[in-house]
């Protein structure tokens, strides 16, 4: 009797194992996959995609080609991801700008509902930095904000273009601390760092990877960041939230498929991404490239995206961001 029961259990178990392995394995890409990245080669977005792709190839069972489409600051790439064949052979890497673009770029008609989300792949923070040998070099964040408030002439704040991540962070700081800065648009984080070193601007809100070498060398000083967790590189730097200031706009990246992608293909990609993100090689790659590791599954990513859209909508309306020519 016991023998029969054991046999039965064994058969049932092996069936279950067969079934579950079949459901995890049921869809995989049949040829090389295109991973569309909305930026040029080099830089954070591209690094992120290449690290991910090199690991993901193992689980997808097919080579993954990174396709850089920097045109139109990502607009062209986002349209292409939406209109790709929904056969699972084209995957897109998006940043939080897929929900903020609609508020600031004329002609953009994609929003959070235009895509099927595979999952979140990374998160980043903006770190407020000042030049160490500048007038604010020996201040902490509270002193700096007080100095900014008292300044007769607004302090020059480098941002990488109007209503980019950097700029939204600047706006949140201004609102939260009741200060105002002179907004100086400069192309890209590296150029902002140079402008800080040459003394053109005194403050910026940049990604950890963009400022690491200068902070280590003592040329720039981090004051605060807009994340929720302590920074990996500088755990002592306080977050704005911990100081009671609501400077907290999330910055993340995610993988998406076209909206019409069938359920089985979506499930296939979700399991590929889950396996990829659990591979220690991704964490290692992110750590050396200075990319913040963060993974959420499809359902949680949708919630994250919803939340981000609401946040960006509120702040854009409040700040009077327009899609029209200014």
């Amino acid at each position: 009797m016991t023998k029969i029961m054991i046999a039965c259990t064994a058969v049932t178990l092996s069936f279950a194992a067969l079934l579950s392995s079949a459901s995890a394995q049921d869809w995989r890409p049949s040829r090389a996959v295109d991973l569309i990245v909305p930026s040029g080669a080099g830089g954070g977005h591209d690094n992120n995609a290449r690290i991910l792709a090199s690991v993901m190839e193992k689980y997808a069972g097919q080579p993954i080609n990174v396709i850089n489409q920097p045109a139109g600051a990502g607009v062209v790439a986002y349209n292409e991801m939406r209109n790709a064949e929904p056969d699972g052979q084209t995957v897109g890497q998006v940043s939080v700008s897929i929900v903020s673009d609609q508020f600031r770029i004329e002609g953009v008609d994609y929003n959070k509902d235009s895509y099927a989300y595979i999952g979140q792949i990374s998160a980043d923070q903006n770190v407020l930095v000042v030049t160490a040998d500048g007038p604010y070099g020996d201040m902490d964040i509270t002193q700096f904000l007080a100095a900014a408030k008292d300044a007769a002439d607004p302090i020059a704040f480098g941002v990488s273009g109007n209503w980019t991540n950097h700029d939204y962070t600047r706006y949140q700081i201004e609102q939260a601390a009741d200060v105002s800065f002179l907004r100086v648009p400069i192309k890209g984080g590296a150029q902002i760092v140079l402008s800080m070193l040459s003394g053109d601007v005194q403050v910026g809100a940049l990604y950890p990877s963009e400022i690491k070498s200068q902070v280590d060398a003592g040329a720039l000083k981090p004051l605060a960041h807009n994340g929720t967790e302590p920074l990996a590189a500088w755990p002592d730097v306080p977050s704005f939230t911990s100081l009671g200031l609501p400077v907290n706009l999330a910055i993340w990246r995610a993988l998406v498929l076209p909206k019409e992608t069938p359920e089985d293909i979506r499930a296939g990609w979700e399991s590929i991404l889950e396996q990829t993100m659990n591979d220690p090689a991704v964490k290692e790659g992110y750590a050396t490239a200075g990319i913040g590791y963060a993974y959420l599954n499809s359902t949680d990513t949708v919630a994250l995206v919803d939340e981000a859209e609401t946040a960006y909508r509120t702040i854009s309306e409040e700040a009077g961001v327009t899609r029209e020519a200014q």
Partner: peptide
């Protein structure tokens, strides 16, 4: 440690991958 153009950004990525912080 500042990449002045796309080529230098690639060089920087290569250094970071090998755990070398340019600067």
């Amino acid at each position: 440690g500042i990449p002045s153009n796309g080529v230098m950004a690639m060089m920087m990525s290569a250094m970071l991958i090998h755990n070398i912080q340019p600067g």
